[in-house]
Each structure stands twice: as C-alpha cells, then as structure tokens.
Design a protein around this nucleic acid. Structure first.
Length: 428
DNA sequence: TGTCCACAGGAAATACGGGGGT
DNA sequence: ACCCCCGTATTTCCTGTGGACA
C-alpha cells in the first residue's frame, strides 16, 4: 500500500531531476552531442557574433572555389575567444557547401588541449585517419609518418588539418611541422591546408627558420569578446536552458559586463551564468544581481580548491601547515616557524619533508597563486625573513584544510593535532 | 661604524622518472 | 628488455643583505 505512492514520488523526483538536467546541459557544451553543439553554434553565429572572423575565413578559403590552393592559416587569440568553435562551425559550413558544388573536402580537428609530444600527436592523427592503431611505443616516428602518408594518398581534393593549440606540441615541434609542411605535400596528391590555432601570438618565433621559409601563413586574430557579443551568446543559452522569469532584469548585462571587463572569455561567462543558475535552483529563488556576485565568489573558491587538488603533494602540505598555524595565532608567521609547522605536519602524515630551501620556493609559489601574501622583511639584527600572511575568507580556509586532509587520506575531524610552533615572541 | 642575525635566493650538483630508441 | 636521454624536482653549497644594536 505504501509502496505505490513511494514509487510515484520517486518517479516524480527522477523526472524533475532529469528535466532540470536536460535544460542545464545547454549551459555545458561538454554534455551536448556534436549535432546539438552545431545547432547552438549556428544560432550564435546567426546573430553576427564573430562575423568579422567568419568573413575573413571565407575570403581565406575562397580560392577553393576557383580551383586554387589557399595558403596555411593561423588563428591567434586568447582562450575562450571562440577560435575552435568558430573554425569548426566554419569547416562544417564549408564542407556542406563543397558537397553541393561536388568538391571533395575533408577535414580533421586535432585537439591538443593537453600538451603532447610529437609522437603522440602523429599517433592521434593516424588514429583519426584510421591509418594506424594507438601505439604506446616501439614504432619510429618515421614509420608513423609513412602510415599517415599512405593513408592520405588515397584522398583527393582538399584536405584541411585543423591543429588546435599548436604550441602544445611538446618537444620537436620542428619535426612535426617539417613533416606537415615539407614532406607531406610532396608525396600526396591532395591539396593540404593547415590551420593552426594558438593563444600565443609569437608561437612561430622559435621554429626552425628553414621550415619557416616554407611556411606561408595567413593570420586571423580573435579579439576577446566584448560585452555586446557576450550578451548575445548568453541570451541564446538562457533561452535554451533557463526559465526567463527566473532571471532578474540586468543579470545578463551584469554577467556580460563583468566578463568582458575581466577576460572576454565566453566559456567563463557561460560558466558564471551556469553557476548562478545552480545556486538559484538549489535555493529555489530567481537569479538576482546579488546572486551573480555570490556565484563569482564561489567560482573563485572552486578555483582555489581545484588548484590545491591538482597541485603537488608537497605544495598541499605547505599550504595546510601555513594556513593552519596562521589562523591559530594572529601575529604574522615567519619562515622559520612556518617551516617547523610544516615539518611536524610532514611527520604526522609520513611525508618526506623537503629542505628549507625548497620550502622557501614553495612558499613563493603559494604567494604567486594568491593563497598567501609573503614579503621579505628585515628585522635588523634579528635577521631577514619572509613574513607570511593569509588573507583568505575563513570558510575558504576551512574548506582548503579539509581538501588537503582528504588528499592525504586523513580523517577530517582529527583536527585536534596541535602544531608545535616555536615560540619566538620572547625575542622581541 | 662594524657586527651579526636568519634567512633570501642564485648556481651547481644530484636524484628521479618516464618516454623513446634499439 | 634494456639503456639512454632529457626535463623536472630537490638538495647542497654558497653568497648576499637591511637594519637593529653595541
């Protein structure tokens, strides 16, 4: 008797959760399939965002329709300025246009968002081409290149190789480019057009001049989005993902304004919107201007947490000991004490402690990331030392401590451990 | 004015680890 | 399977330093 209503309730809950998730996926491209992504892209590009760049791309690839060979292309712009999406969108467009005109055109998008050595990149390329399996080792670069060559020989017409984040080719970018620019065009009959993207304006600077001379590229610059464009992009996302009534007036303007001012990164802007929506949904309130501020703080906080989680163990240990002992007493912390605190923490978690020299570097690193503020201070005959201050909000400190403890697989509530901080106060 | 503290931070040596070549 | 090479992390060793204090 009781089972039936329970089932219904569960079903309702599941439905609610799923519909909510379905809509929210429009705020996160990773969760959408390719067709959906293109649909959104089309809508975005339909409202003339990145219009200038698309025009430039069109004129760059125009020679294709005159049976000519376009030169290579290099897209330059900061992260989140839409290099990849614009190019993919354009390639898709170009391909369908070519199909209509009975021109053969293929393209491959080589995504190097994580740095890879030359070997891996070639291997990936071969995989995309279906020319080889995924190798771990045991096959020479040359052999791999031949395989790619063999495969490409079968193709006719135009072929566009879109290499995303070219500067992520670790080591031997030269031989990779040499292969693409010199060797490949000689041995295959298709017309190869290379498209590179990079967020570094000068990525071509340190490639071999001999290759560079063979290397005629056109450059297209992607400026950071302005508030106007961001607003368009956000509006489209909102239409898809959120209930308009739940958004207070001015919220979109605010997100667009803040984002364009600080980074001009569309991905981050959408992330901010998404975060605001999440908080609003959790609390069952509409998205207000205040909520956007809170979302910004939360994103900031998540950034710190993510940084700690992905950081090396030693850095985590140093951070933990510093924020713990700094929050324990109000007076500023000096290198010596901090090091002692770190040593005892290491003893507790059975981590090999690094020397004070290395410790000092880690402290500087934390300073760079903004976890702490450290400045060198001379106290006359009492020596020179770094004064370490922690200026993070208390919740964040607690959160970070928790995260580090979890990283070390420690019981989170065993906080009673007391640091043996050397008492130096009698010296002053 | 010289001393001396308690480190900073540079340079070189060494350890380490993983990938690539054979 | 083995070795080698290379990039990175860490250690070791070192010199430098601002200013309180005598």
């Amino acid at each position: 008797m009781i089972v039936v209503p329970y089932c219904i309730i569960r079903l309702v809950i599941i439905v609610i959760i799923y519909t909510a998730r379905d809509r929210q996926t429009y705020l996160d491209d990773e969760q959408l399939d390719r067709a959906e992504q293109f649909k959104i892209l089309k809508e975005i590009f339909d409202v003339n965002v990145r219009d200038k760049e698309i025009k430039e791309l069109s004129s760059h690839f125009a020679p294709i329709f005159r049976d000519d060979h376009p030169i290579h292309l290099s897209l330059i712009g900061k992260t989140g300025t839409g290099k990849t999406v614009t190019m993919l969108y354009f390639l898709n467009l170009l391909q369908s246009l070519c199909r209509k005109k009975k021109l053969e055109l293929g393209y491959i998008h080589l995504d190097l968002s994580t740095p890879k050595p030359c070997f891996r990149v070639l291997n990936d390329l071969a995989c995309y081409l279906d020319a080889a399996k995924r190798y771990k080792k045991g096959i020479s670069l040359d052999e791999l290149m031949s395989k790619v060559e063999e495969k490409l020989k079968q193709y006719r017409g135009y072929f566009i190789l879109f290499i995303d984040e070219i500067d992520h080719v670790r080591r031997d970018l030269d031989s990779f480019l040499k292969f693409l620019v010199r060797r490949l065009p000689q041995s295959v009959s298709l017309r190869l057009v290379l498209v590179f993207s990079s967020n570094n304006l000068n990525w071509q600077d340190n490639i071999d001049p001999r290759i560079k001379s063979f290397f005629k590229v056109n450059e297209i610059l992607f400026d950071p989005y302005n508030a106007f464009d961001l607003k368009k992009i956000l509006s489209i996302r909102i239409k898809k993902a959120l209930n308009r009534k739940m958004i207070q007036k001015g919220v979109v303007d605010k997100i667009a304004a803040v984002s364009s001012r600080t980074h001009g990164d569309a991905r981050k802007a959408v992330e901010l919107l998404s975060k605001s929506a999440q908080i609003a949904e959790k609390e069952g309130i509409p998205i207000t201007l205040d909520l956007v501020d809170r979302a910004m703080e939360e994103i900031e906080r998540d950034k710190y947490v993510a940084m700690v989680k992905s950081g090396p163990k030693q850095l985590q240990a140093v951070l933990y000991s510093i924020i713990s002992s700094a929050s324990k007493n109000t007076k500023p912390l000096y290198t010596g004490e901090a090091y002692e605190a770190y040593r005892s923490f290491c003893a507790r978690i059975k981590l090999r402690a690094v020397t004070q020299r290395a410790f000092s570097d880690l402290v500087s690193e934390l300073d760079m990331y903004g976890f702490i503020q450290a400045r060198v201070l001379s106290q006359g005959r009492y020596g020179r030392t770094k004064q370490i201050m922690v200026n993070l909000p208390k919740e964040l400190i607690d959160k970070l401590r928790q995260v580090v403890l979890m990283e070390f697989d420690l019981n989170v509530d065993s906080k009673k451990f007391d640091y043996q901080v050397i008492n130096t106060s009698d010296k002053y």
